[in-house]
């Protein structure tokens, strides 16, 4: 099913570009604005989700202590996958030929866009589930101790290839590239933000913000 992407966070794009507060000249601001616009035009966001009672989560999709902790109060859970489609990738590849800056900024816009799509998807799921339910954080294969190796099974359970055109390379890279899979718990009371923060981030070791004593705020 499709999902609406109405805006992309400029601040997030600048973060992905490694901006740490220096003065941005007007021509670079214009480049960023142009790319934000193009990314919005090229994105073809689609998502698929399924709801499972906790006891009926298909085998091989979830593993590890982190997911167990995430879902400890959840009677049900949602598996979701979302993608921006391939057109933004086409534009990034094309930009790399003549304008590498544009390619880089577009790539970061795509990363921010798929996050925004996931937020929108989460809203749709929330409203489809009706009142009185509370969702946990989104947790994706590759975070914490949930291995990337569950990804094939994850996509299979969602029939993601057929439903939204999302597949994997043999090395576990989601294609189209700007895509996300995630699990969310559905609980009867408000859920703590368990997995936001640096320790769960795949950039932990190299993050320039963290080294500067800051956080990117996620």
């Amino acid at each position: 099913m499709s999902v609406t992407l109405s805006r992309i966070s400029r601040a997030e794009v600048l973060q992905y570009l490694g901006w740490r507060g220096s003065e941005i000249p007007p021509e670079v601001n214009a480049q960023v604005d142009g790319c934000l616009q193009q990314a919005l035009e090229l994105a073809a966001p689609r998502m698929v989700w399924r709801l499972f009672p906790a006891a009926e989560i298909p085998e091989g999709v979830l593993a590890g202590a982190d997911v167990r902790a995430l879902l400890c109060e959840s009677g049900r859970c949602v598996l979701m996958a979302a993608t921006l489609g391939g057109r933004i990738e086409d534009a990034i590849r094309r930009a790399q030929v003549r304008d590498m800056t544009r390619a880089l900024i577009l790539d970061c816009c795509g990363s921010a866009a798929i996050e925004a799509v996931c937020d929108a998807a989460e809203e749709e799921i929330r409203s489809a589930l009706g009142g009185g339910v509370f969702l946990t954080d989104r947790f994706s294969p590759g975070y914490g101790d949930l291995p990337l190796s569950v990804q094939p099974r994850f996509l299979e359970v969602l029939d993601a290839s057929r439903r939204i055109g999302l597949t994997l390379t043999p090395t576990g890279i989601l294609t189209p590239r700007k895509s996300v899979t995630a699990v969310l718990g559905v609980a009867g009371r408000p859920q703590p933000r368990r997995f936001r923060g640096c320790a769960y981030c795949s950039m932990f070791e190299n993050c320039t913000y963290r080294k500067a004593g800051k956080s990117c705020g996620k």
Partner: peptide, 14 residues
């Protein structure tokens, strides 16, 4: 030194 960021570096390279 962090006075400029990556897009500016690549613009210069371009």
């Amino acid at each position: 030194k962090g006075e400029i960021f990556l897009p500016q570096l690549i613009n210069s390279a371009g």
